[in-house]
């Protein structure tokens, strides 16, 4: 089996008496979509923060491409190949769509210390940004102010910014949140193809999307992974049904 692109090893994080992550070990292999599901409060966001560098675990390690990145900050992990999208869009609202995508391209280039040439005049950055915007379907909105975008368009822009990074793995925090059924279906098809470029760790509430996309699913309850397996395995697991799926009927 191919070496995993990303793995966590016994991640544990406590907030006072609450154990938000309780020895979480999971991995994401090349070419796969690994979904993490769980009820609200299961610790999904805490897990993502520890993987992306926003939170330090109390115990446990995070490995990216075989390198221990536990001690690296968010920016260094991004440079090492993590491409993250946010549950609540984190975009520069005053700027244009193109400028937001160019920021990603600029980060990817690693050359922000240029004080004179026009950013939008940089052909390489611009080509990369426009290409990624076209892929998510925002080619007609390059110069729109981001604040004027619809919710769905902002979700698309989130994905486009992650694309500009050419990451080795995508970490997606509820990319379907707030999308209508049309939007979800479109994004599902998009992610389905995207896994060939880089594997995806997908935290998602939309079960249709998860069951359509995931190669493997991990179920997180009270900070613990209670099961990991294929969609069929997870669906037929009595424990998972009891802990999670059953509640949603």
């Amino acid at each position: 089996m191919a070496d995993p692109v990303l793995s966590t090893d016994g991640l544990t994080k406590r907030f006072g008496a609450l154990t938000a992550s309780d020895g979480i070990s999971l991995d994401v292999r090349p070419g796969e979509i690994h979904a993490v599901i769980g009820p609200n409060g299961a610790g999904k966001s805490t897990l993502i923060h520890q993987i992306c560098g926003g939170l330090r675990p109390d115990h446990g390690r995070v490995h990216l491409l075989g390198q221990d990145v536990t001690a690296l900050n968010t920016a260094a992990r991004a440079r090492a190949g993590l491409g993250r999208t946010f549950q609540i869009s984190a975009l520069a609202m005053e700027d244009s769509v193109l400028q937001n995508a160019m920021l990603g391209a600029l980060g990817r280039s690693g050359r922000p210390w240029r004080f004179f040439g026009r950013a939008l005049g940089d052909a390489d950055l611009r080509a990369r940004a426009e290409d990624c915007l076209a892929r998510v379907g925002l080619a007609d909105h390059l110069h729109a102010r981001t604040a004027t975008l619809s919710h769905g368009q902002r979700r698309q822009l989130e994905v486009a910014v992650a694309l500009t990074l050419e990451p080795r793995i995508f970490i997606m925090d509820e990319p379907m949140a707030g999308l209508g059924s049309d939007g979800s279906a479109k994004l599902t098809r998009f992610l389905d193809r995207l896994r060939e470029e880089a594997p995806i760790l997908l935290v998602e509430h939309d079960m249709d999307a998860v069951f359509a996309l995931a190669d493997r699913v991990s179920v997180l309850v009270y900070g613990r992974v209670i099961a990991t397996g294929t969609v069929a395995e997870i669906r037929s697991s009595a424990e998972v049904r009891e802990a999670y799926l059953g509640e949603e009927g």
Partner: peptide, 14 residues
Amino acid sequence: NAARQVPVRVETVG
């Protein structure tokens, strides 16, 4: 300009 508006985004692009 982005660091003023959304520092967390700027970190995420490295």
